[in-house]
Design a protein around this nucleic acid. Structure first.
Length: 477
RNA sequence: CGGGGUGUGGCGAAGCUUGGUAUCGCGCUUGGUUCGGGACCAAGAGGCCGCGGGUUCAAAUCCCGCCACUCCGACCA
């Protein structure tokens, strides 16, 4: 039976979620392994998803006044060391270039794990006056962090990302930028990736090395674990002071500018997979899917079928839909399973019977009965179905988040509740010692201090002292 | 980086204990029949047995080292 064959190809997600994830990454042809641990090959289908992410986000960044730049890949050790917290955080995972050709280098160069220091070096050269501010730069690139363990999309040693780095005249302006970009990420994830997010602030323990404040959008995966979707940092003038970046203000006095940085990476693709995927494979939100519609002709050998299918494809493409056709001689069943594996949101079948009736048959990747669509005005019906899939994915993910988020009043409650997956909301005194205890006793980390606060209790259940905020706790990827 | 498991055509496995020159299924190629949920017949092609060293007349098999994958910790976007 067909069902048995599916199980052969891809591990059941309820049996082994990790193995299921790896199966999807390789069998949907998103990724291949290279010979170096943690360095993956992004195959055309996987890279196309990243390209779609890039196109949409890049346009949003630019609409908000940001400019793209490209900075070097190597950071001299002396430059990296200028900001103490920053270097301490990244030193353990830096890879170094020590040779130039056959000569040992005078100073070793770090392969960028992130580019704050490089941006600072450059900003010092180009920022002199209040007229030079703000500087709103963004860079699409890859960075390298020598991770001990690695997994496709979730933890690469080299990963693709974007890093925005901005400089502002005032702290208020920089803070506003930090929030603005967090909102850009949240909107993108919810509206385009169909992934509901929790916006909030990271605790000091979890914040970025060198940042004053780190903000995050946290998502819940299908297995109820947490994934950070994007981060936005407010640096204050710490880096500016460390790198001696100054400008002359309208008051003819020297000032340090205020800085932000923000980024998202291919990890988001891991998030898409783990949010929407099912036991048939990948499920892609239509807005990001490289192929939105696959046209499958049925009984192609029969008179006129192929022509009609190609005509249908042309109609869809002309309407701006990312559609493709499978004219291979594989069986109907094989094709159905194949495009389900690859997460194509909508499949259109067209056979002799349909042509006779002037219709085609649509199957949504999200399931439900197959639908019969008149070929007359098919592009509009398809667009509407794609919208349905997009909405259904979001609603399902939102339900998963809501159903698996609970209020907790004790460490034990968090431990037991999160052990089977989920987000715990619990009050917190703000003390890092209690956060450490949560990790030790409940096995969870703080995901964020959500902007949307609820009053669950008056005290921190860990220490009994008065509580300051509600924190989301969970097990993170 | 510590502990466990794994590595054999593209994929999944058998063979390893007891050394003798590699087997099966899927996939791939060609031809034909099929075609509304993973089709069938026939003929073919494809292997540095993860890499390096050692033992031996002889190594996929035994020994040592390394690399990679994977799971559990610690670390991290």
């Amino acid at each position: 039976m067909a069902k048995d064959k599916k199980v052969e190809q891809i591990t059941d997600m309820d049996v082994d979620f990790t193995q299921w994830f790896t199966d999807v990454c390789t069998k949907a042809e998103l990724i291949d392994y290279s010979s170096i641990k943690g360095m993956y090959i992004m195959r055309p289908y996987g890279y196309a998803i990243w390209e779609n992410i890039q196109h949409i986000l890049d346009a949003e960044f630019k609409a908000l006044g940001h400019e793209n730049v490209y900075l070097p890949m190597l950071i001299p050790e002396s430059l990296l060391q200028k900001e103490k917290d920053h270097v301490e955080g990244f030193a353990p995972e830096c890879a170094w270039v020590t040779m130039g050709g056959s000569d040992k280098l005078e100073e070793r160069y770090c392969i960028r794990p992130t580019s704050e220091t490089l941006f600072c070096e450059h900003y010092k050269n180009i920022i002199h006056s209040w007229r030079d501010l703000p500087k709103l730069y963004n860079q699409w690139c890859s960075v390298l962090r020598w991770e001990k363990t690695s997994r496709p999309f979730l933890r690469h040693r080299e990963f693709l990302w974007q890093e925005g780095h901005t400089m502002h005249a005032t702290a208020e302006e920089a803070r506003a930028e930090t929030q603005q970009m967090l909102n850009v990420y949240a909107g993108f994830m919810e509206n385009v990736l169909a992934m509901p997010v929790i916006k909030g602030r990271k605790t000091d323990k979890e914040k970025f090395n060198g940042a004053e404040e780190t903000y995050t959008v946290e998502c819940m995966m299908h297995d109820h674990k947490a994934l950070q979707g994007g981060t936005s940092h407010y640096f204050g003038d710490g880096f500016a002071k460390a790198f001696d970046i100054t400008y002359t203000g309208k008051d003819n006095q020297l000032h340090h500018p205020f800085q932000t940085s923000w980024g998202v990476s291919v990890r988001m693709i891991g998030g898409i997979i783990m949010t929407h995927g099912d036991n048939s494979g990948l499920v892609l939100p239509p807005k990001i899917a490289p192929i939105q519609v696959i046209v499958v002709p049925v009984a192609m050998h029969k008179e006129g079928v192929q022509e009609a299918a190609l005509k249908l494809l042309k109609t869809l493409k002309a309407a701006g839909i990312r559609a493709e056709i499978d004219l291979s001689d594989q069986s109907m069943g094989w094709k159905a399973a194949q495009y389900e594996m690859k997460g194509v949101p909508l499949r259109l079948e067209l056979g002799p019977r349909d042509i006779e009736n002037g219709v085609c048959v649509a199957a949504k990747r999200t399931g439900g009965d197959k639908l019969t669509l008149p070929l007359e005005g098919v592009a509009d019906s398809v667009k509407s179905l794609l919208d349905d899939v997009q909405r259904e994915l979001y609603e399902k993910a939102l339900k998963n988040l809501q159903d698996n988020t609970f209020d907790a009043h004790s460490v034990e409650e968090v431990r037991d509740g999160c052990a089977k997956g989920g987000f715990a909301r619990m009050m917190w005194c703000g003390d890092e010692a209690c956060e450490v205890k949560m990790k030790e006793q409940a096995g969870v980390t703080s995901r964020c201090i959500p902007f949307e606060q609820h009053h669950i209790g008056d005290v921190c259940p860990v220490c009994g002292k008065p509580a300051k905020q509600m924190v989301i706790w969970g097990i993170a990827y």
